[in-house]
Design a protein around this nucleic acid. Sequence first.
RNA 1: GGAGGGGUGGCCGAGUGGUCGAAGGCGGCGGUCUUGAAAACCGCUGUGCGAAAGCACCGGGGGUUCGAAUCCCUCCCCCUCCGCCA
Length: 425
Amino acid sequence: MIDRRLIREQPEVIREALDKRGMEFDLDELIRLEARRRQLLAVEELRAKRNELSKQIGATIKAGGDAEPLKAEVVEVNRRIRQMEEELEEVEALLERRMLELPNIPKPEVPVGVDEEDNVVVGQQGEPRSFDFEPRPHWEIGPALGILEFESAVKIAGARFVTDMGAGAALERALINLMLDTHTRKHGYTEVLPPFLANERSLIGTANLPKFEEDLFKTREGLYLVPTAEVPLTNLHQDEILDGEELPLCYTAYTACFRSEAGAAGRESRGIIRLHQFHKVELMKFTRPDQADEELEKLIRDAEAILEMLELPYRRVMLCTGDLTFASCQTFDLEVHFPGMGKWVEVSSCSQYGEFQARRCNTRFRMHPEDKPQFVHTMNGSGLACGRTMAAIIENYQQENGSVVVPDALRPYMGGMSEILPPLP
RNA sequence: GGAGGGGUGGCCGAGUGGUCGAAGGCGGCGGUCUUGAAAACCGCUGUGCGAAAGCACCGGGGGUUCGAAUCCCUCCCCCUCCGCCA
């Protein structure tokens, strides 16, 4: 959420941001509502009058006088208050709803663009692997090796699910452990194993609600399956005032992630790139505003460190304004080269949100007890998406005979296994 | 799930429907004292909106009343006991 003051004081900043994102939004309505809300604040004068008269009534009764004329006066004042309050409530409710639908303002350094075509590659590590045979996509290799099953997943749940089997399950678990161990022991993050279901308030906090409900799975009880660990982690400190000396707070969490992928029908339908359930180790930080850029860079480096340990060729992409997610003010994607698919695929998305989410979660900090609390900055990134990383390994480490070599860094996590071999005929 | 008991400021904890934004204590901040620290003593110490006056907030929402932290309804959460359960 954006500071309301901006709406009355610098609406042009918001208008420019909406233009850059290429987003339709009735900003004038918002400005009207905010102006009306301000007018209706005059009700406070009437409330002051009521408070004053009520005090007089109390004093009069205590003194044994007749309070009836005063009471009649308050009844009249109350009638006027109720009238104004009715409209005020209406205006505030609508204003609140619209505010929650207003996207974040991109940072000035974000390249202006329309869609992913305008994203900018800002770094690359390693070169796409060359093969002396035709590399195959992971959805051919995995099932052939018996480590990825689509048929059983369809029986259990339906389309867009996968079953990891045998060495496949071990491989994904090894990835989770490698990532968590590295982030906690080498990068200084605190490990969290949060709830995988979250309530409406928390989803509003991260800005998945109210606008993107159709992307989520909802339970009968009104809870939502988390689409990412960002949701529980960002809501860890709802309604708290943190000690500025303790910032940045750095958390990492493994969670399953659930996305209904409504409207994504047909896109990336093969393999395990887009599923209803996937697994991810997330990195998340609460920082002071002045630390944000530096901490985001470190967070991205922490995610990249995993790719380097796995010796996967990757590049870093800065998203343009048109490709930014709703809540983000700056996002960098990490893309790994998939030789079987013949393209770069996102395995991590690292974003900072400024105070956008912190306002919604009401997470603040102060440096000294006498300071006014101010909003923290939040940021997060995949460190990394496990399923996609596993697919990247399958494609990058495939051998001509159909086997997959286990990256060195994962072998200690797989009982020393160095290669996943096809089942004997 | 059933029965009972509770949710008050950073924490603990008072609070007869009227001058309660809320006693007291702890903690924190500032000061006196001290070579320094501790102890003692004194003062200050919630958040939001607003230029200010002021308004709002005692788990959330609604109601009764001239007036609600105090009464009523409802939801949520916590504790105890019972049941069920990985």
